[in-house]
């Protein structure tokens, strides 16, 4: 699994993501976080693994982890159609702008998130948002759950096949359901 940015030209980075070599490591970090948040973008209904769209995996993940979800683009309706109500919905830029504001108290008003998980935005959008977080939210940890390496995240899975991706997501969901053990 390679740890080069998925889009070849996205290399202009001196501070690079730490690769997540095993899903268990990601699970441990998510469990440790006090106020995690999951941002799900528009590719959630475009990308498929084993005949199932990404959004189905993310609903399982969110139910298991209890990490609140912010749906970007038009994903909120897609979640609701599938019986899952995200904690909030707004444009990707809107949530990005809030995350770089240290005074923002999160979607529940109880405190700023400390770990933000990104998945399913167009690669270049997610990449630039992660760059924004890296530079302007230095205390925030970011992690991508995609199968595409994101150099600007704090932690990123390496580039991986769809099969490996599905397996990773399923392992994480299972572990989170079991309480992270």
């Amino acid at each position: 699994m390679s740890c080069e940015p998925w889009q070849c030209a996205e290399i202009a980075s001196t501070k690079k993501a730490t690769p997540i070599q095993k899903p268990e490591v990601a699970v441990a970090m998510i469990k440790r976080a006090q106020r995690p948040l999951l941002i799900v973008g528009s590719n959630a209904t475009m990308r498929y693994m084993e005949g199932k769209p990404l959004i189905d995996y993310m609903i399982d993940f969110a139910n298991a982890s209890k990490v609140p979800v912010v749906a970007t683009a038009h994903m909120v309706g897609e979640f609701i159609k599938r019986g899952y109500h995200p904690a909030s919905f707004m444009g990707a830029m809107d949530i990005g702008q809030r995350l770089v504001d240290p005074t923002w108290q999160g979607i529940d008003g109880k405190g700023h998130p400390d770990l933000v998980l990104f998945v399913g935005l167009p690669y270049y959008m997610e990449s630039l948002m992660l760059s924004g977080m890296k530079h302007f939210a230095p205390d925030l940890k970011t992690m991508t759950l995609d199968n595409l390496f994101h150099v600007h995240a704090t932690f990123s899975f390496p580039n991986a096949s769809l099969e490996e991706w599905a397996a990773n997501l399923k392992v994480m969901t299972q572990k989170l359901k079991d309480g992270g053990n």
């Binding site: 202009a12 980075s13 001196t14 501070k15 830029m93 990005g96 702008q97 770089v100 630039l128 948002m129 760059s131 924004g132 530079h135 302007f136």
Partner: peptide, 11 residues
């Protein structure tokens, strides 16, 4: 309308 920067390059 505050600027929200997403640098395309670190350099």
């Amino acid at each position: 309308y505050k600027p929200f920067y997403m640098p395309d390059c670190d350099l």
